[in-house]
Amino acid sequence: MSAQARFTDALLDPALPCPEGLMTWNGSDLALRFAVYRNNVVVSLVDALADTFPVTRELVGDEFFRAMAQVFVRTYPPRSRVLAGFGRDFPDFVETFPPAAPLPYLADVARLEMLRVQAYHAADVPPLVPAAIAGMLAEPRQLPALRIGCHPSAAILRSSHAVFSLWAAHQGRVCLSAVNPALPETVLVVRVGLDVQTIQLRPAVGLFIAHMMRGTNLATAVDAASADDSGFDLGEALAMLLRWQLITALHTGDHAHEHPY
């Protein structure tokens, strides 16, 4: 085992002794000095998670959050030098973290917060201009086979908990006491320009958009959404795609007539 491997293990596991071969000028106990490094590693990464998951933190309190985040950091330290994506696995960890079990909605709140960070840093792709979209919609023959390219920042979260309301309550948009966390909610996250938007959708509209985002054709996406909710309104769903500038490309099934927008 190399020296840096032992150093790394000791950084992440406080039960291990300090690595051998270290010294201090005044002969003072090494543990306290090595603890500075342990602290730098763990605290900086816990702080990174606290920045990414502010509502999750508020829901459980700072002490609980930091204790939970410490376990995560030590068990799943980052595998990338770019910390913007650190925490992608945190929601799954929260879901299986036994002390968080009394808050079954917590993991989905964390998922929503991670989607917001990912949307913030997602690639810059201009949306299609409305005229190009209107041109396509004016050709009904093409519509069933229509597929879209979706903005890279866009994501749909379909939760069996009131994930949007819980999040919105912490933005001061709604009163937390009025939220029933057990009600299912569906959320669209997308960055429009520089601003990350968090929008509650009807579940069937969310299902439709999720299908379109995966490259499903319009007819199949409508069938899936209608099967989910017989009241599914395609007009409302298309309006959402346009309003939040989700469409970055249009493709018809007929590649000879691909629209090069």
């Binding site: 020296a3 840096q4 491997a5 150093f7 790394t8 950084l11 071969g21 490094y37 730098n40 590693v41 900086s44 990464l45 990174a48 330290p77 980052p78 595998r79 990338s80 030098r81 910390l83």
Partner: peptide
């Protein structure tokens, strides 16, 4: 300094002999 070991990123600037 060093800050990675294997694919683990430690997010600190660690000392060298």
């Amino acid at each position: 300094a060093w800050s990675t070991h294997g694919d683990v990123f430690l997010n600190d600037l660690l000392p060298l002999p």
